[in-house]
């Protein structure tokens, strides 16, 4: 085992895709918590959701797998010209179609609420809205 490989296995970088999406998820969550601007919060929420969607897509990947479309001429067992075809798992992708729809609906609703908040408070900043509430009851 050479050095880079040892490094990879000891830190768990072999799962680099998971590390990346955990980082993405934390970026999203941090924006939601740290930013006062409501639109930025919505975008942070979006990044957070996207990370979860990527998680499903990542786990669907099968090493050496191809798109799960049975090629013409393949028999029912999945064999093609005498050797087995390996497919990626299509189910998580299908689930994520639904999750994306949910995400779009959430974003649309959140933006609509932000518009209403802007109309009522005259600001899209959470801290200014809090001050406004304290002054006006």
């Amino acid at each position: 085992m050479n050095l880079p490989e040892a490094l990879v296995s000891s830190v768990g970088w072999g799962l680099w895709a998971y590390w990346l999406l955990i980082a993405l998820m934390m970026v999203g969550l941090y924006i939601v918590i740290a930013r006062d601007n409501l639109i930025k919060k919505v975008m942070g929420l979006n990044i957070f959701q996207a990370a979860a969607i990527l998680f499903y897509v990542t786990m669907a990947k099968v090493e050496g797998g191809t798109a799960p479309i049975v090629p013409a001429g393949a028999d029912h067992a999945g064999g093609h010209g005498g050797h087995e075809i390996v497919y990626s798992n299509p189910l998580p992708h299908v689930l994520m179609l639904t999750a994306i729809v949910v995400g779009v609906a959430t974003t649309a609703l959140a933006l609509a609420l932000a518009v209403r908040i802007h109309g009522d408070y005259g600001t899209s900043e959470e801290d200014e809205a809090v001050v406004y509430d304290m002054e006006h009851g």
């Binding site: 969550l29 939601v32 957070f48 959701q49």
Partner: peptide
């Protein structure tokens, strides 16, 4: 009340994090 919309927004943020 004006704050209903703000509460709904806050509920949405928390609820979405829970949902994810």
């Amino acid at each position: 009340h004006r704050r209903a919309v703000m509460s709904a927004f806050y509920y949405l943020v928390m609820g979405t994090i829970g949902g994810v």
